[in-house]
Design a protein around this nucleic acid. Sequence first.
DNA 1: ATAATTTCTTAAACTACTTTAAGTTTCGTG
DNA 2: CACGAAACTTAAAGTAGTTTAAGAAATTAT
Lengths: 193, 193
Amino acid sequence: MFEDAIIKNINQYIQLNDIEANYFLSLLYPKTIKRKEYLLRPNEICKYESFITKGCLRSYTIDDAGLEHIVMFAVEEWWTGDLYSFLTQTPGNFIIDALEDTELLQISKDDLEKLYECVPKFERFFRLILQNAFVAQQQRINQNLSFTAEERYLHFIKKYPQLEQRLAQKQVAAYLGITPEFLSMIRRKLARK
Amino acid sequence: MFEDAIIKNINQYIQLNDIEANYFLSLLYPKTIKRKEYLLRPNEICKYESFITKGCLRSYTIDDAGLEHIVMFAVEEWWTGDLYSFLTQTPGNFIIDALEDTELLQISKDDLEKLYECVPKFERFFRLILQNAFVAQQQRINQNLSFTAEERYLHFIKKYPQLEQRLAQKQVAAYLGITPEFLSMIRRKLARK
DNA sequence: ATAATTTCTTAAACTACTTTAAGTTTCGTG
DNA sequence: CACGAAACTTAAAGTAGTTTAAGAAATTAT
């Protein structure tokens, strides 16, 4: 069952006994969403942080010209949500929807705060998760500043080879910050070599 | 004395008693660096995370063409360091130097780990700090993807009005991901309005 | 104060990437 | 398995931002 996967994941960072694990599991709401369905609609308040047991989602914005810009992908074993909206319980900036049929385990803000109180080890768990995310984001910012589109694409397929297989090229382009047309040209140029 | 400032800052996030505060202070090394001096040289291992009591620093990279790209600024009441290098104790990707004469309080990785053990509340403190940093970085990534250079500049001076006063324009340009020449043109265009 | 250095400005030529548009391929659904 | 929709490709024209270069202004060091 998919509750196992999340405990296994957490045990890579902190050690939970059975009581703690069961208490944590009792706070989770399972949810399934189909491809193209929303996890978080425009301007909706993010009520839950979600751990993905199966599937793939994207967090993105739509600009004035109607173009989509992807801030992050999330696949199995990752957490997703609009953290700003979740923490403040105010409408967020990001939209989240599923790129594949997806299964999630969700925790509400109140329950997460209870969890921090009852099992403070989870402060450490989420600190470690956030540390990794922070480092990854800092590297992405640097690459967006210093790499060309081609360099960003090459880095992306090297860093996330399995993820790239699952994504449409237009999603990759929206993550790299280029148009699908230009990504197509980059790929043609690379293929010719 | 500047040790007060850091305790005051931390007490905004968690409540420390005198024993805990004094223990924390005992782990800190004060350091001062002058303008243009390095806090972290190219390929150096980041031995300390640093809390800034006075001054201003930048974390940046230099690309193959010799251009600088600023990943973050850090001023009073902020932490800085190359987190990846600090956590892994391997050479990092970022260079850190001072844009003004700067005073820091530093903590080593070993001491920070001791601190997490002895005063687990600090797990919470750094989780909260990282949460805020994560949200800010996610917004910056989104803006780099969806805003024009002019929009990014307008957002920057609105979000950090006091910081912009302290920075040379070329530093702002290196943070926004544009050339100083183009920033100059943007400013002229805005001034004419 | 003054020289030396760095930063800022301006403008013309250039380029990485976008836009538009049309055709082709792939994919999801009945 | 077929057909409608979405994704991908290609190419020509357009643009946001870069490069280069030179002069002006501001800052730093002596």
